[in-house]
């Protein structure tokens, strides 16, 4: 038996993202040379929303890119079948920029590790920040977020599901408890 409960509904997600957008501009000391990089797939949608919210705050758009970290996963030899590889689209030059990695859920930190390795193959950013909608605890690597929508520490058998209208038809953050 699994049970499902809502941690954030659509309005709570909207409020969290608005706060995150403000924090992001504050921590980056403006928007100059800032690039949002969404992790495929839901991170890409969240980055696009943050970009629009920041445009509302600052009056000009902020660029965003996409990153698929599949080919940099540390468990690629062990998983099967082969995960589908999504699109990566980044500006050609990352040198000297401030990059904000945007993802839906932060758990073990292994996805972030892969993203950091992949970004290093594109250039040498001045600074990299990590922005996540939900931090569920359970890190296996020394990685922590800079901007967080919701902190909720849950057990290893439970799961956080982030639903995004563009992909899932509605906005919600749900906790799925096993057993």
């Amino acid at each position: 038996m699994t049970s499902r409960s809502t941690l954030l509904d659509d309005r709570a997600i909207a409020r969290a993202l608005t706060r995150m957008a403000s924090e992001l501009v504050e921590q980056c000391k403006g928007t100059e040379d800032v690039l949002l990089v969404g992790i495929q797939r839901r991170g890409v949608e969240l980055a696009a929303r943050l970009s629009r919210l920041i445009e509302g705050l600052e009056g000009h758009p902020i660029p965003s890119g996409k990153l698929d970290i599949t080919l940099y996963r540390d468990d690629l030899q062990a998983v099967g079948p082969r995960p589908v590889v999504g699109e990566t689209r980044l500006p050609s030059d990352l040198d000297g920029r401030t990059i904000v990695i945007v993802d839906d859920v932060l758990y073990t930190g292994r996805t972030t590790r892969a993203a950091l390795d992949e970004l290093a193959d594109f250039g040498r950013p001045r600074r990299i920040l990590l922005c996540v909608l939900v931090d569920r605890g359970g890190r296996e690597l020394p990685i922590q977020p800079d901007i967080v929508g919701l902190r909720q520490v849950i057990g290893p058998n439970d799961r956080i599901e982030v639903l995004i209208t563009e992909i899932d038809g509605r906005d919600a953050v749900e906790l799925v408890r096993a057993g």
């Binding site: 690629l76 590889v85 193959d121 594109f122």
Partner: peptide
């Protein structure tokens, strides 16, 4: 279709400044 779609993603790797990903390391 899976091979063609996967190739679509790999086209971009050859356009990168460092044209290399660690997927088949070892």
């Amino acid at each position: 279709g899976l091979i063609l779609d996967t190739a679509e993603a790999f086209k971009e790797v050859s356009e990168r400044p460092i044209k290399k990903v660690p997927a088949l390391r070892g």
